[in-house]
């Protein structure tokens, strides 16, 4: 019952927290683009949260570097559950061109599954995905939750 209520509330106004774990900056800018006038996702109640503790959705961009690994796991631990994680960009989905880098710990889904095997993870591929794709991804993820 409580879980159902939480899920309902989550879908109405998801607050997102943005984590860059080793991206080239572009996916991050496209995420910010979603918040600016042309796409303006605030219309749908999607807000950038100031702290992971307030976040319902974690937007992760970029493959995880060794240095960012612990920090990402910590951020994920801090989020209020249930929390959906959206891997944005080809880097975050599959590591893409950075797969053989010596300083990469792996894709974010793998890193987060180390601390929570049942994490809800959705993927938006593209380099960078267009804001339309990010919005579609968020909508689909929330629909599936």
């Amino acid at each position: 019952m409580l879980a159902a209520l939480k899920r309902w509330a989550l879908k109405k106004s998801p607050w997102v927290y943005h984590v860059n774990t080793g991206a080239c900056n572009n996916c991050d800018i496209e995420i910010l683009d979603c918040l600016t006038p042309r796409f303006d996702v605030e219309r749908f109640g999607i807000l950038l949260a100031p702290s992971p503790r307030h976040a319902d959705v974690l937007l992760v961009t970029g493959g995880v570097t060794l240095q960012a690994r612990g920090a990402l796991q910590e951020v994920y631990r801090q989020t209020a559950k249930p929390c959906a994680m959206l891997c944005i960009g080809s880097c975050a989905c599959s590591m893409c061109i950075f797969a053989d880098g010596y300083h990469m710990a792996g894709p974010p889904d793998k890193v987060v599954r180390e601390v929570d095997p049942d994490a809800f993870i959705a993927y938006v591929p593209g380099c960078p995905p267009k804001p339309e794709a990010i919005i579609l991804g968020a909508v689909k993820a929330l629909g599936a939750l």
Binding site: G22, G62, T65, Q67, A68, A71, F98, G101, H103
Partner: peptide
């Protein structure tokens, strides 16, 4: 935090 080892790649 964002070092990806590009020069080596």
């Amino acid at each position: 935090h964002n070092h990806r080892g590009m020069e080596k790649m």
